[in-house]
Amino acid sequence: MAHSEAPDEKLAELEEWFKGVGGPVVVAFSGGVDSSVVLAAAARALGPPQVYAVTADSPLYPRSELEWAKRVAELLGVNHVVIATSELEDENFASNPPLRCYYCKKELARKLKEVAKRVGARVIVDGTNSEDLGGHRPGYLAFSEEGVRSPLAELGFTKADVRRAARLLGLPNWDKPSMACLASRIPYGQRITVERLKRIEAAEAAVRSLAGVRQVRVRDHGDIARIEVGRDERRAFFSEEVMDKVARELKLLGWKYVALDLEGYRSGSMDEGLAEKVVPKAELRRT
C-alpha cells in the first residue's frame, strides 16, 4: 500500500513509536537497510546509549554482512552486541523443511531475550516491513510468538518508504541490495551444511565480480547452479565472455551445470512450489 507522507513524516512516526515504548530497546540487527532504519530511528528517539543492536555471527550470512552491521552500528553510536548462533546444530533447521526459518528465529529470539534481560530492555524489535508480510514467513511467526515487534510493519512502511528514510538519514547502506540468509538458496528437503553455505557465498561473490551485478542469488540445485540477478541487470549476461567466465568459476566450485534464470531475481523463488505457506496478515497494526 502506497503512502502519501513525506519521508520525514514517516520517520517522525517511527521515532514516536519508539518514544512510546521507551528504552532500553534491543534491535535484531542484520546490517541491512530495514533494520538499519529501525536502529537509527531508535537511536534518534531514545538516544544511542539506550539502544542495543544485536547481530548474529552465523555461517548463514556472508562475512560482509557482519562488517556492514559493525559499520552502521559504529556510525550511529549505539551499543553493538555480536552473538554466535548455532542453527545447524538443530536438526529441525538443518534438515531444511519448509518451516526452516521458524526454528532459526526461535533460537535467535531466545538469544535476543537473554540480551534484553541482561541490559534491562523493555522491548525487542526487528526490521520486518509491511511488504515482507505478503510472502512465506514462518520466521515472522516465531518472532511474533516470542514477543518480538516489527515497528516498520506495524506502521505500514513499504520497501520504498524504508529506502527513502534510509537515504534521508544518510545511512551508507540506503541502496544496498537485500540479502536473505544463504540457506534460502537450497531447495527444501535438501540438507543444509557449512560446506554448501560456503560454496554459495563464494559463488555469489564471483558472479558479482565477474558480471558486475549487485543483486545476486545462486540457487544450489545439487549439480546445478541456478543464477538469479536483478531483472534490470540480466543484460550483463549478454556477453559470451561473461557467461564463459562465470560458468568456469562456478564449475571450479563443484557444480556440473551453470544456468541463468531468465526471470531474474525475485524474493522467495524457492517458495514458489510450496503447496502451503505461512503468510502473515498484510495489514498489521498493534495498539
Rank of each mutant, 00 (worst) to 15 (best):
R231W: 10
K70S: 03
A206L: 14
M179L: 14
F18N: 02
L253R: 06
D8E: 15
P7T: 12
L76E: 10
W255M: 03
L197H: 07
Y188F: 09
R219A: 12
E5H: 11
R214T: 15
C181I: 10
A109P: 04
I192Y: 04
Q50N: 14
R208I: 07
E263A: 15
A180Q: 02
L168F: 10
K256T: 11
F237Y: 02
R185W: 02
E201I: 01
K277D: 02
P98I: 00
E89P: 05
D34R: 05
G156T: 12
L197T: 07
L262F: 01
K159I: 07
D34H: 13
H136S: 07
A121H: 07
S36P: 04
E15Y: 03
R185Q: 00
D132V: 10
S36W: 01
L253E: 13
E240Q: 11
K159N: 08
P24N: 12
A211V: 12
C181G: 03
Y61I: 11
E154F: 00
V25N: 03
S95G: 00
P7F: 04
A180W: 01
H80T: 08
D244L: 12
A225P: 11
E241L: 09
F93W: 10
R122W: 11
V82M: 04
P98T: 05
S178Q: 09
D175W: 01
P187L: 01
V51K: 10
Y52V: 09
L46M: 12
E65Y: 03
E240L: 14
K245Y: 07
M1Y: 09
L152W: 02
I124K: 10
G254I: 04
E276S: 09
C101P: 08
A166Y: 09
L155W: 05
S36D: 09
E91K: 13
T85N: 04
E114N: 12
M270Q: 08
N129S: 13
V51Y: 03
L253Y: 06
F18V: 03
R191E: 15
F157G: 00
L39R: 03
L252Q: 14
E204R: 09
V278L: 05
E204T: 09
A211Q: 12
L99I: 05
V37N: 00
V21W: 08
A225G: 12
S209I: 02
L76C: 12
D244W: 10
A203H: 06
G31A: 10
V242D: 08
I192N: 00
A160V: 13
L155D: 00
K117P: 01
E241A: 15
Q50M: 14
L171G: 04
R286D: 04
A282V: 13
A236M: 09
G31W: 09
P187Y: 00
L155F: 00
G120K: 15
A56E: 04
R248E: 15
R122P: 03
L60Q: 14
K277N: 03
L262W: 04
R185I: 00
V162I: 06
L250P: 08
G32Y: 01
V194W: 08
M179W: 02
E204V: 07
D161S: 01
G135K: 05
N129P: 10
D175Y: 05
P172I: 03
L39E: 01
R63G: 02
L46I: 13
E146Y: 10
V119M: 09
I192L: 07
A116K: 05
